[in-house]
């Protein structure tokens, strides 16, 4: 299991468009479970409604966890995805 944290810089936070793209992007890594956590709330990358329901806003920090067979590749891809789609600053 591997993870990274990042601060969401998109003014709308985690909104429908990138959340939808995220669900699609996660399909490239069928062997891994990808989870997004904020505080005590979490959602899998393919749980669109739940993820939006977390209400992640601009400047809030989330942790992305990947667990499974292709986790190294998934981790790298997710990092790139968050930077590109949420203007995120990742650690």
């Amino acid at each position: 299991m591997k993870s990274f944290s990042c601060v969401i810089n998109d003014p709308l936070g985690i909104h429908a468009r990138p959340a939808g793209k995220l669900a699609k992007a996660a399909k490239d890594f069928p062997a891994s479970t990808i989870t997004i956590t904020k505080g005590d709330k979490s959602a899998a990358a393919n749980q669109l409604i739940k993820l939006m329901g977390m209400g992640v806003k601009q400047n809030e920090k989330v942790t992305v966890t990947v667990d499974g067979g292709d986790e190294d590749a998934a981790l790298a891809a997710m990092k790139a995805f968050f930077v590109e789609n949420f203007s995120a600053e990742c650690e």
Binding site: A16, A44, N46, Q47
Partner: peptide, 16 residues
């Protein structure tokens, strides 16, 4: 168009 693509994803959302 993206709006309806979002609706599509909601319609097949796992939790829903």
């Amino acid at each position: 168009a993206f709006l309806f693509e979002t609706h599509q994803m909601m319609a097949e959302d796992v939790d829903y």
